[in-house]
Every structure is written in C-alpha cells, then in structure tokens.
Write a protein that binds this DNA or RNA. Sequence first.
DNA 1: TTATCAGTCATCTATTTGGTTGACTTCGTC
DNA 2: GACGAAGTCAACCAAATAGATGACTGATAA
Lengths: 199, 199
Amino acid sequence: MSTPRRAPTPDERRQDADRSRRLLLSAAFDEFAAKGFAGARVHEIAARAGVNKQLINYYFGGKEGLYRELQQAWLDREATFNTPQQPLADLAVRYLRESLADPRGIRLMVWRGLDSSDTPPDESPIDSDLAYLRDRQHDEELAADLDPAAVLLLMMAAISAPIVMPDVTKRLFGIDPTAPEFEQRYGAQIRLILEKLSG
Amino acid sequence: MSTPRRAPTPDERRQDADRSRRLLLSAAFDEFAAKGFAGARVHEIAARAGVNKQLINYYFGGKEGLYRELQQAWLDREATFNTPQQPLADLAVRYLRESLADPRGIRLMVWRGLDSSDTPPDESPIDSDLAYLRDRQHDEELAADLDPAAVLLLMMAAISAPIVMPDVTKRLFGIDPTAPEFEQRYGAQIRLILEKLSG
DNA sequence: TTATCAGTCATCTATTTGGTTGACTTCGTC
DNA sequence: GACGAAGTCAACCAAATAGATGACTGATAA
C-alpha cells in the first residue's frame, strides 16, 4: 500500500458546502428532468454529484426538499420571457432551439404540471409576457382580435411539443425531433404560422 | 355470526376472467394516467378494481405488462383522428372539449413521451390524418404553404397544453383550465387562429 | 362422482428506497 | 495547539413495493 488509507480528499473532495449544494442541485436537475419526481432516485442523484447521499438530507431536508428547491430555482430564473425588443417569430425560434438543445427545463415544467399533487401553483405574475404581446399587437405584428394569453400558451405548447411528444413528432415528420433538420423545418413553419397571425 | 365464513362471493366476486381483466385495465387507466408508471402502485390499481393484486401478475405478467397492454389498447383505439368530413376547426374544438372532460388519454400519451426509456416507439401510420389535412389544403381550408405535419402537431399541442401545463394556463388566462369558461374562451381562440391559417 | 383446471386470494419474501445514526475530518478561531 | 462547529461519509434501518407461493373455489368434462 503506497497510499495507506488516504483521506478521500484527492483534490476536489474538499469540504465546501456551496460546492456540494451546487453539485447536488445540478445532478438533481438532470435526474428529475429525466425521470420525474417519482422516478428519480436519491442515490443516483448523489452518485451523479459525486457526493454522499446523506448530504441531500443535510442540505435540503430530503428528496422532496431538493425537488422543491430545484423547481423554485428554475422558476426564479425563468420567471419571465425576459424579452428583449425582438420580433415574435425570432423569439419563438430562439426558444425552440434552446429547448431542443437542452430540454431539461421544459421536461421539469411538464412533469410538475402532470404531477398535480403538492407543489404550490406558483404565483409569479407572467404579466410582463402578456404585456409584451400586447405591445406586439399595437405594432400590428399580431392581429388585434387574438387573445395574448392564448397566443402565448400556443407558443409554449408548440415549443414543448417535440419534447413532450417525441414519438408523435417523429411519426408526423418522419425524422427524429433531435435532428437538426427537424429544428430547421419546424422552426420555419412556426415562423410562417406566426406570420399568418399578424395584422 | 349470521354469515359464518361465507365465501367471498357476495354477488359480483364471481369468477370471471374477462371481467377481472377489464376491471384491472380500467383501474390501471385511471392510476397510470394520474401518476405515471413510476408513480403508480399496483396495490392501488388492484384496490380500485376491487380485485386481488396478484391478478395483475396472473393476467398481465406484472406492472410493466399491464402498462404495456394499456398503452397498446389505447394506441389501437385512438390510432387515427378517425375524422369524419368535418371542418378542421370543429374537429379541433371537439377534441379540446373531449380532452378537457377526460384528460386521461392525453396524460397517458404525454407520460409515455416523457418516459423515453422502454416502450417501443409505436409504428402506426398516422398517414390518414396527414391525408385529411392535405384534403383540407386542397379545399383551401388550410393555406397551401403550411406543412400538414406541423399543423397537426400544433393542434395536438394546443389541445394538450391546458392539461399538460395547467398552472401556466391558469396564470395566463386567470381562470382554471377545468372551468367551462376556459373551454369557451380557448376554443374560440383556436377557431380564430385556424381561420387565419386558411387560404 | 371425481379429476382437472382456470380464477382468486391471503400471506410471505426479496429488494429497493428514503432516511437516520454516529463517527470522522476539516476549518476557523481563541 | 485546543476546541467547537460545519461538512462528509459508511453503515444501518424501517417502510414500501413488486412479485412468488401455495391453498381454496367453482366450473366443466370424463
């Protein structure tokens, strides 16, 4: 034994609360997005984070606490469309690209919606997004008789669809929704449709 | 004891394989739609069906077999839009109403899509639905430059949205997606949008 | 009548899972 | 250096869960 019972601190395993928390949150994001709350396994999250699973209890008070904190963190970050002054279609296509590249956020949201139980309904305003759409209506980039709420919901639905229904999407388009051609083709159609919804 | 150890066959508990299978399938539909595969509990399904949980193994070879058979049954039944010669908007609104009244089918579909693992991708054609849309294009009920695949995906997404993202929907519209006013308001918007996508 | 077999159930079991315990380590500080 | 607090972990534990076992029941046919 050249290394007689070395402390398991080869370099990174330093004691660092923040680091451990961050690692766990990140691993939890992967795991919960992939399998949902019921399907996720704490030992798997800990393994991904390279950390003892007990730390989940230590820092977050258990699986549920970790889930809650993750949801909250994601809600806070994504609270608003945080829209720059950008044409509606560009915005939609940008979100489509981002969501296809990393579907974890959408998956997390859908899983929360499906879970129905627990999870307080989240009370953030979202008004800013609606206001943005109303501005677009004023600019005649969006027909005046459309309900901004419906348009926004539809946009979110359109962007989530290939992630939420990948097999349906594949059957419909004949290509895998993760293929770059799909993003191309579908994005173009979203553009086209949004165009038809204007003035 | 007026009934000394009566056989547990008070009337319905008759031995009837089909009945038990049907009961289990129906209970499984409820349970899996409500909680997904990982969240569902076999003892709960059996309880709902009023039957011993061992029958799940006897008839379906376990939880997973039951899930598979349920998915298959639902896919078979709902294989196609089974569209009568009906205007596109009417069709959409009809599906919206049906889905809001009984979201189990949609929830099952979404959960399958999210699960990603296992479950063979389902190879049914869906062509008939696309053909229907192409007919609509020919009738100029749908703009010719639109991709039927995209339109169909969008319609499914639109109909699923209030079920898959109930909290987002509620924040956006200010009313609960299960309220009749919502169906009214959202359905009208879907009509309007489909109108703008025509000719 | 009896043998057989599908249908049904109560009970048991192996395993998984989230969580707890108590010891050890590191770090800041007096 | 000593000491206490925070961070970390290996091992253990109780509950839950899917599935297995073997017995009982009723129907059908020989």
